[in-house]
Amino acid sequence: MPTHTISILGQNISCIRNGRRVLKDLSFETHSGHALLLMGPNGSGKSTLLRICAGLLRPDAGALTLNGEDGIDNPGILHAAHHYIGHANGLKSALTVVENLSVWRSLFGTASDAGLDHALSTFGLAKMAETPAHYLSAGQKRRVALSRLLLEERSIWLLDEPLNGLDEKHAAILIDCLSQHTRSGGMAIVATHQVLDIPEAELSILQLGNATP
């Protein structure tokens, strides 16, 4: 469990993609126990902001700090602290579910089998553990991707439309995971088009509009 409190501060972030200004002078703050929902129409820059927070994309202007340290020139500190799940699932279709998880585990450098079993059982993947990812439905693939969150404890969860393809049952499971995560001092930034009601989490919504003047 992350014991110390953490905070991410974004100031005056601007980002231009394909010649279009996607984010303009955006500032936000988030910290332990907090879930920040990014909402807005398509193309409003939700995914872009998530990728900036993940240290995968460099904004054209502005500052981003993690616990006061600069995360733009030094994205390594962001990388080590977050789980980022984009709209692509990161699954290798030739490998089985359990092999995909083992690959992630080896990349995270964690060795515990307990984490793996926990991840499998939480998202109801035990039955399909030995099935190649290729045979899974869209929702099942999404669940495998989300199970990555539980493989290793990381304090920042960055989720891009995590509910895509999930049925109600598994959406509820994800909400439950988010609630536990924030309760134990984690934080989450979630791009979503529907308000997630996460019990016991400090919830705020960052409405992203069309930044083009």
Partner: peptide
């Protein structure tokens, strides 16, 4: 059979 097993 495998595919049937993961149907829910």
């Amino acid at each position: 059979l495998r595919l049937a097993a993961i149907e829910e």
